[in-house]
Design a protein around this nucleic acid. Structure first.
Lengths: 200, 200
DNA sequence: CGCGAGCTTGAAACGGATCAATGACAGTGG
DNA sequence: CCACTGTCATTGATCCGTTTCAAGCTCGCG
């Protein structure tokens, strides 16, 4: 299943028939308030599961961020699979547990962190996502942010303007440098990490 | 296992050896920032599971709210149980999914709702917790809030003062009446529900 | 009766939101 | 190749909701 940029493929509240696995590209997951306020609850990419937070109906909407490729598993066939491979059930629970831990951290971010701390945490998340590749280079990490500022704002519970201002401030302070909209270089990993933890 | 009021029995970040089920009383679950800021990520009571958001170490702390009674299952014995009763694994995943849905809604609350909306949502949550008993009485619902204001504040990402002020405002507007600190009566269910959804 | 923890209320400060203008590109068509 | 256009990002000025700081208040309990 290939989903073009910006196309929504899960409607919040619609009956949950399928389970998805993201195999290529990226996807954003969000919930909406009636007046249009949006909270992005996560970004999913290659290998991520989608649809664990669903019983009868989806508790979230989902939309492609760039062109995305998905595998769709109707619930019926998932049940057949878990019956055949009992380990899968365990795997799914593990995945759900991992999600739960992440969401708890994100609740602390949304409920208790300042705008600076949120952005710093966001950058740290993106760095961690790069994997071990960056562990050897403590400074000067290249980062690209595939999502527009609007999505970053809705992910962090801020407005575009605040996101933009804080990133500019980080640049002014020499913590990062901004080549262009999507490409950022981390100049002072340690300090950003400290800000993320609320130590500065 | 009986835990006295205020006693912490899970330390955030400590190695996760056990899985818990709350059998009596109440428990609060939270994460901390180094400088002491706290986000309560949930309250658990009779029948709730505790410890799904844990892999190697706990992603949260937990503390009794009033005297609580728990069943402790070391991970090893959980594995024995899931091996013997394969359905249990499915049950656990279900529970994790339910949690995930709840947390997504709470992220929208923390990231996008105003103080009034947060309190209204909180009241709706407590009402829903009463079960079907209140469905027949659309108005005048008795509610008791077993947790102190500090906990409500840390749960909603607000300060005590704001919680207090908003509740007072609700009272002034005739939406609720406050007998004493822990006992509240819902006077206008519909309007509170509307505020919770962000429609007012 | 008096003490203290927890709650409420008031005044002032502040961080982030909102409103508004400008800037940087990428894509289009002349 | 270069205006033109529209989208997205940045920057500035102001506003507002929530926090912070500082008193009072309530009420259970010794």
């Amino acid at each position: 299943m290939t989903v073009p940029d910006g196309r929504s493929f899960i409607e919040e509240g619609s009956p949950a028939h399928d389970f998805f696995v993201v195999t290529g590209g990226r996807v954003k997951i969000f919930t909406l308030l009636p007046d249009g306020r949006r909270q992005i609850t996560g970004f999913a990419e290659g290998g991520d599961f989608l649809g664990l937070a669903a019983s009868k109906s989806y508790a979230f909407g989902a939309e492609a961020l760039g062109t995305a490729v998905l595998c769709r598993f109707p619930h019926a066939s998932m049940q057949r699979l878990t019956a055949r491979f009992p380990n899968l059930e365990h795997r799914l629970r593990q995945e759900a547990s991992r999600e739960l831990s992440l969401l708890q951290a994100r609740m602390t971010l949304l409920g208790r962190k300042t705008a600076r701390e949120r952005l710093a945490t966001f950058l740290m998340e993106r760095i961690r996502l790069l994997g071990a590749a960056c562990q050897e280079t403590p400074h000067q990490i290249e980062l690209d942010l595939p999502m527009p500022r609007t999505d970053i704002a809705d992910y962090l519970g801020l407005t575009i303007e605040t996101v933009s201002r804080v990133l500019s401030a980080f640049k002014r302070e020499g913590l990062i440098s901004i080549r262009n909209i999507t490409h950022i270089t981390i100049m002072q990993f340690e300090r950003i990490s400290a800000i993320a933890e609320g130590l500065e």
